Simulated scan of single mutants.
Amino acid sequence: MVARKSSDKGSGGVALVAAVLVVLAGAGGAGGAALNSGAGGGGAAAAPVQSIGVRKWDAKRAARGGDAEGAMGHLGVGISKQAVKQELDCLENSFGQVRDFFAATPCTSLDRLLLAVGDQAGNAALVSVVWVTFPGRNQARQFDRVIDVAGSGDVKPLPGGVVGLPDVHFTAAHYWSEIKDTTITIAESEPATGHVEPDLLDAMTEVAAQLPRP
């Protein structure tokens, strides 16, 4: 696994190309939780809240098992919708030096996931997860060194419209990546509506990066 990428990493764009797009209704999980605090809202008396670090530990374990809703539930938020897109064209769906890398070193698969995470109060965030797979580990490590550089470009996240939220500009302020074998996982989060605490955005991003490829 690699360390977290720089928060001033180059920002991502949004684009769609012809491919199968699946939009799934989420189960809402802890949909009543307030995104601006990471704890239950609604004015009711609440039990003592665990620190974000403790909750993140359980959330990452759930994410590694492929349970996205359970993972976000541990952070006190719920998934309202999600969209996944599987394709092969990394060159078309990237920009900057990252795109230049794909021109010389094509990927073997590209999977993109977008989660709409929100609460009943209207606070919502977008969490993007991208999996890029290469023919071998050496190419994956080389790509990791490129995408780790601030301003080097990005693989474009899916646009917010596919999950019913406004499009946002992914700034990489909340960014995490993991490398395993020949696949690199890139996760980013941005607030969409209302108010979302930066610490919660960071936690959602780190947790989402643990999800296995669809």
Rank of each mutant, 00 (worst) to 15 (best):
V2Y: 02
R4T: 06
R4F: 04
S6R: 15
G13M: 08
V14I: 04
V17C: 10
V17I: 14
V17K: 15
V22G: 01
V23Q: 06
V23C: 08
V23I: 15
G26A: 07
A27V: 10
G28Y: 03
A33D: 13
A33H: 14
A39T: 08
A39F: 07
A45V: 14
A47M: 14
A47C: 13
V49G: 13
Q50A: 13
S51F: 05
I52D: 10
G53M: 00
R55L: 10
K56Q: 15
W57P: 03
W57E: 13
D58G: 09
A63M: 11
R64Q: 08
G65C: 11
G66N: 08
G66T: 03
A68W: 05
G73Y: 01
H74G: 01
L75D: 06
V84F: 10
Q86S: 10
L88K: 08
C90V: 14
L91D: 02
S94I: 06
S94Q: 06
F95H: 10
G96F: 04
G96W: 04
G96Q: 04
F101N: 13
C107T: 10
D111N: 14
G118I: 04
D119M: 08
A121N: 14
G122A: 10
N123L: 13
N123I: 12
S128A: 11
S128L: 12
S128C: 12
W131N: 12
V132R: 12
T133W: 06
F134E: 01
G136M: 06
R137M: 07
A140V: 05
A140E: 03
A140Y: 12
F143M: 03
D144G: 15
R145P: 03
R145D: 10
V146E: 00
I147A: 00
I147G: 07
I147D: 11
A150C: 07
G151E: 01
G151D: 05
G153W: 06
G160A: 11
V163T: 07
L165E: 12
T171G: 12
A172G: 03
A173R: 14
K180N: 14
D181V: 09
T183I: 02
T183R: 00
T185H: 09
E190T: 10
E190F: 07
A192F: 09
T193G: 04
P198E: 03
D199F: 13
L201H: 04
D202L: 15
M204F: 08
T205I: 12
